[in-house]
Design a binder for these strands. Structure first.
Length: 451
RNA sequence: GUGAUUGUAGCUCAGUAGGUUAGAGCGCCAGAUUGUGGCUCUGGAGGCCGCCGGUUCGAGUCCGGUCUUUCACCCCA
């Protein structure tokens, strides 16, 4: 049989894993620095935890896990006869793969309410699964990197989450623009335009501005049944470039005033904005599709890239309500790690540390020197140096070729004269030069090599 | 889920209007070079032409299905 892997999944080579770890570690260390604690949740959740949380589209994209054992014995036969897949699913599948990290987090908070401090700051870096059609940069299995705070309405968290974005992307050497808006402002716009019930349609349309342009948004809103007069009003308001302008346009609207006040507070926390290369921007056209956001919303856009958003997030009032715990507010952000990886790869932003750390390979000429070399290797490893020995004392050409393939920067050549004198022949694989030195000197030299 | 698109050696790709034994470059292996990798030269291995079926005397080539890839929509990270 010919081996294959499921659609939308990937194997990762050592080179890729080094780079992915570099990226995850950068994100993780900033999360930790800001006081966020790690949690992990199962790849499988009960289907009842997942269904209905992501809308109709989301339910369709959920991976369901078939029950163990004789699952047909429990099957809803009337649904089976009627070929009603949706109804049948409930009787043959009780578990599903997690679709994101936010819903499992909400479940976690409710289940462990008495064990966790409040406010609870958590980060989580784990894979999630979606049965979406794969495309470039979009997979059925991918990692999410989330940080959320629950149990506080303080805007200080919005401020620090923005700083986390800033610090991570600065560390990665990838200049970005962090866009900020507020869902209450969008709600106010819908109210002022006279279409409070069509807030979702409006935001979904506005969200596509980057992609389809102003004319496209106008058309989309019309198609979604928003009257022409309202569309005109919305466009006029979205022209606002500053909070001051917006304030005038939304004057007298309670929701608008609240939203603008929140944005003011956020920007006050972040003043002065002292970033090395990243921008912070108020953008009234930032909408974010997800419906559960209720306050500030964020989105990160690469400056030099035509790749959509590299991260997003926002505040939600009622994350845990569906699990029976009302009025727990939260705010969180997510890094689009797979996309960030692609951008960094394209721009060659991964440093050389994000690679194989093997520094030294021992190559011996015969059985006797091979054993001697192994003892030297043991000493070198004791000193904390990443090293290995070629498994057999075969011809040197073969051993050096292996060193080359592994990109080992140094090879220690161990023959009779080395064994007798204790002077080790050390070959620099980059320069092609060779020198003779004692074990201690060799260890010192290896320690000083950063690669 | 809708409409397209891709699949030939490990990789990137040729393959002419259906016609013997399917090619190239790179990579790989061996030797030139018994204690020296990369460069060079010489030789070699490696393909159910994605899979299943159909048309045909004959299919890598045409048709249908299926899986996969990529793209646009939908949605989203």
């Amino acid at each position: 049989m010919k081996p294959s892997i499921p659609k939308g999944t990937r194997d990762f080579s050592p080179e890729q894993v080094y780079k992915r770890n570099y990226l995850f570690d950068a994100i993780k260390s900033v999360f930790i620095k800001y006081g966020y604690q790690p949690i992990e949740t199962p790849v499988m959740e009960n289907l009842s935890t997942l269904t209905g949380k992501y809308g109709e589209e989301g339910d369709r994209l959920l991976f369901k896990v078939l029950n163990n054992g004789d699952y047909l014995a429990e099957a809803d036969t009337s649904a089976l006869d009627a070929r009603d897949s949706r109804r049948l699913t409930a009787s043959i599948s009780k578990r599903g793969l997690r679709y994101d990290l936010t819903v499992p987090f909400a479940r976690f908070v409710v289940m462990h309410l008495n064990e966790i401090p409040m406010p609870f700051k958590r980060y989580q870096i784990q894979p999630v699964w979606r049965g979406d059609r794969p495309a470039k940069g979009r997979y059925q299995e991918f990692f999410q990197c989330d940080a959320d705070v629950v149990g506080s309405e303080s805007l200080v968290y919005e401020a620090e989450l923005v700083q986390i974005y800033d610090e991570v992307f600065a560390r990665l050497g990838l200049p970005v623009t962090i866009k900020v808006n507020n869902r209450k402002v969008l709600a106010a716009i819908a109210e002022v335009a006279g279409i409070p019930d069509q807030l979702t349609s409006m935001t979904v349309a506005i969200d596509k501005l980057d992609k389809i342009g102003q004319e496209g948004v106008r058309k989309e809103m019309a198609e979604r049944g928003i009257p022409e007069s309202a569309v005109a009003k919305i466009e006029q308001i979205l022209e606002a470039k500053t909070l001051e302008t917006l304030e005038v346009l939304l004057a007298g609207n309670a929701s608008g005033e609240k939203g603008i006040a929140e944005l003011r507070t956020l920007f006050a926390y972040l003043d002065p904005w002292a970033s090395s290369g990243n921008s912070l921007e108020f953008d009234p056209t930032l909408a974010r599709g997800l419906n559960y956001y209720t306050g500030c919303i964020f989105e990160v856009q690469g400056k030099a890239v035509q790749m959509g958003s590299l991260g997003g997030g926002g505040r939600y009032d009622n994350l845990t309500g569906v699990f029976g715990l009302p009025d727990v507010p939260g705010v969180g952000i997510s890094f689009g790690a797979e996309r960030i990886y692609d951008v960094m790869e394209e721009q060659g932003l991964f440093p050389s540390e994000a690679s194989d750390q093997l520094k030294l390979l021992f190559a011996a000429f015969d059985e006797q020197t091979h054993q001697f070399a192994f003892r030297l290797l043991t000493e070198v490893r004791k000193a904390g140096i990443c090293a290995e020995i070629y498994p057999d004392p075969v011809k040197l050409k073969k051993q050096l070729k292996y060193a080359n393939d592994r990109s080992v920067p140094f090879v220690a050549l161990i023959g009779d004269s080395e064994m007798q004198t204790g002077q080790i022949a050390l070959k620099d694989m980059v320069q092609g030069t060779q020198e003779s030195l004692t074990l201690d000197a060799l260890i010192e030299k290896m320690k000083s090599q950063t690669r």
